[in-house]
Amino acid sequence: MKKPIPFVTMLVTALLLTVIGSTTATATGTATGPATATAQTARAGYVAQAQAAGLSAGQATALQAKVDGYLVKFDGQGTQVSPNQVDLDGAVLNVTVPGENRPRPLGDQSAQVYNAYDCTGWTNYGWFCAYKYENRTGDNIGMYSCAKYAIPWVTVGSWVNNQLTGTKPMMYYSNHGSELLPAAYSSRSKGVQWRYVTQIRNCL
Rank of each mutant, 00 (worst) to 15 (best):
Y125T: 12
Q109W: 14
R136I: 05
T123R: 03
E134Q: 14
T96S: 08
T137I: 12
N94C: 08
A150Y: 06
S110H: 03
A111E: 14
W159R: 02
T120M: 04
A116I: 01
N101F: 15
T123D: 05
Y133H: 15
M143E: 06
A150H: 07
R102F: 15
N115E: 11
W153R: 11
V160P: 03
W159T: 01
E100M: 14
P105L: 11
G121K: 00
T120F: 02
C129W: 01
M143I: 15
S145P: 11
M143D: 09
Y133T: 13
G99N: 01
V97F: 10
G142D: 04
R104P: 04
N94H: 06
Y125F: 09
P105V: 12
W122P: 04
G157I: 13
S158M: 07
Y149L: 00
A130S: 06
N140Q: 05
L93V: 08
R104V: 10
N101M: 12
W122C: 07
W127R: 10
N140A: 01
P98I: 01
C146F: 14
V113F: 03
K132C: 10
N135D: 14
M143A: 08
S158L: 06
I151D: 00
R136V: 11
P105N: 08
P152T: 10
S110P: 04
V154E: 12
N124L: 09
G90I: 13
I151R: 00
W159S: 02
W159A: 00
C119F: 04
K148G: 07
G126A: 05
K132L: 12
F128W: 13
A116M: 01
